[in-house]
Design a protein around this nucleic acid. Structure first.
Length: 463
RNA sequence: GGCCCCUUCAUCUAGCGGUUAGGAUUCCAGGUUUUCAUCCUGGCCACAGGAGUUCGAGUCUCCUAGGGGUCACCA
């Protein structure tokens, strides 16, 4: 049984780095028919924000990650931690330290001045005398004084850290609340975690947590430390670079499956494969072949993937999604055609909405450069005649019907396709680029097509 | 600064002692298209540097350089 977890602290929104480790953990659990648990690391009561948890769950919901059982809140488990603190105290594996914050700061400053690594000096480790008055002690755990702390990371291999790098760290603050490294170890053990997949930045916490496992007699899980995601310059990801709230990606018109596909390929791969459905991820994912090195966020690739997924999404779903972007075409009688010609040209849902608006809304202005280029010579006359021909034709429904009319028209008038197509495009769309004219006309219908042609000619003749 | 981790095209990556170092994104060129986009074809572009080990090294070892992480009564 594989049990993994995602354990955010509720201090902010979920960003893509967090989503990626969550995805890896989720995939690994689901692939093995195991459990994926969600635990909130809220032991620092002063830093918690209610909205943060909501935002995280909302993001999970959007991308389709689901967790098993109830959300576990560390703030509701203080009595459990307290019990273990008492136990360690009694067993002599932890002790009260009466050093004040001020004294500790002074010690650190001294050590820094001597260019030493700041660390607790262990002065209360074996203290038996009378404690000083007026100091609420913190509880420190006894870390090994010599030797090495060794563990086998599932990604990085064997990690060895000299024991003197780990000092007797605080497991309970002077107000009695427990600290991170202590409760993480306890909860991971109690929750039955078999595999802990987390960010690289936790690598140095692992030896500390192992001290707790050792003291409490728990069996540690397998650890996987996933390298960071950097920005395109290889520096730490900031908001500006895309360390955005996952939900911002929704607002920018990304599909969740595109974002997930993008993230799964950041640090992990399977040969040359670029496109992964969730099922394929589940089939092939293994944390053992996550990369050792950091990777960089690359917006172009995300956009490419998103374009791919938009292209392969049913029109029904797109129409539904588009409502969030101010476009409701669910009642449009040419919905299929409309989406077929626009989704191929869109990398985001925002662009898709723009493309659609460009077609279903008559142009209010005409691109000056396009007009200049398309309306040389007798272009106005050409499209006026073409409008007449359209009105005289019957049974125009499909793009091929319109195409036939266009073909006949250019043949009869002995002109090239462009002579008709260019001014027609400006008249219908207001610019030189866009879907094929036959398709646009089929979407608009004869009446609207003729209207737009007349309106355009009127507008141009006035200038 | 101490400790730890990392280093293949601009970017994501394949490679697990013998390859013309492969794919993808971007970019460029050509084709398809009445335009744009898509699509297809092709092109540019990489083993950080230096010593070893070996018949042979992107792959193993060491050193250097660069990058990152971490050193809280935060998580």
């Amino acid at each position: 049984m594989v049990v993994t977890r995602f354990a955010p602290s509720p201090t902010g929104y979920l960003h893509i780095g967090g989503l990626r480790t969550a995805l890896f953990s989720w995939l690994w659990a689901r692939k093995n028919s195991g459990k994926f648990l969600l635990r909130i690391e809220d032991t620092d009561l002063s830093r918690n924000k209610d909205e943060a948890l909501e935002a995280i769950i909302q993001a999970f919901d959007w991308v389709g990650l689901n967790y098993d059982g109830d959300v576990i809140y560390q703030s509701q488990r203080f009595d459990i931690y307290k019990k273990y603190i008492e136990q360690l105290l009694q067993e002599g594996k932890a002790y009260k330290c009466y050093m004040s914050k001020e004294e500790l700061d002074a010690l650190r400053a001294e050590q820094m001045a001597r260019k030493e690594r700041p660390r607790y000096d262990g002065r209360y480790r074996d203290f038996t005398g009378t404690p000083p008055e007026g100091v609420e002690p913190v509880i420190r755990i006894k870390a090994p004084l010599d030797g090495e702390i060794v563990f086998n990371d599932g990604i990085k291999g064997e990690i060895k850290i000299s024991a003197n790098e780990v000092d007797d760290f605080i497991i309970a603050r002077s107000d009695g609340t427990p600290t991170y490294n202590f409760v993480v170890a306890i909860d991971d053990a109690l929750m039955g975690l078999t595999d802990v997949i987390r960010g690289d930045d936790h690598l140095y916490n692992t030896p500390k947590q192992l001290v707790v496992y050792e003291a409490l007699g728990f069996t540690p899980p397998k650890f996987y430390h996933v390298p960071m995601i950097n920005n395109e310059q290889g520096k730490k990801l900031s908001k500006r670079d895309g360390a955005l709230d996952v939900m911002e990606y929704k607002n920018m018109g990304f599909l969740p499956e595109a974002l997930l596909n993008f993230l799964v390929r950041l640090g992990w791969s399977r040969g040359d494969q670029e496109i992964f459905s969730i099922d394929e991820m589940l089939e092939y994912f293994d944390p053992a072949n996550i990369n050792k090195s950091a990777s960089s966020y690359n917006l172009d690739k995300l956009l490419w993937l998103n374009g791919h997924y938009i292209n392969n999404t049913t029109n029904e779903r797109l129409a539904q999604l588009l409502k969030d972007f101010g476009v409701d075409i669910s009642e449009h009688d040419r919905l299929e055609m409309l989406l077929d010609v626009t989704k191929i040209r869109s990398k985001t849902l925002v662009e898709l909405a723009e493309q659609i608006n460009m077609i279903i809304t008559a142009p209010t202005e005409y691109d000056a450069k396009a007009v200049k280029k398309a309306f040389k010579g007798n272009a106005s006359e050409i499209i006026t005649n073409f409008a007449k021909k359209l009105q005289e034709s019957s049974n125009l429904h499909l793009p091929t019907d319109y195409h036939k009319v266009m073909e006949e028209f250019v043949k009869d008038n002995e002109i090239g396709f462009g002579k008709l197509g260019q001014p027609l495009r400006v008249a219908l769309l207001g610019k030189m680029t866009g879907p094929g004219m036959d398709e646009v006309m089929a979407i608009l219908g004869v009446d609207e097509t003729v209207n737009r042609i007349q309106k355009c000619i009127k507008s141009i003749s006035q200038n």
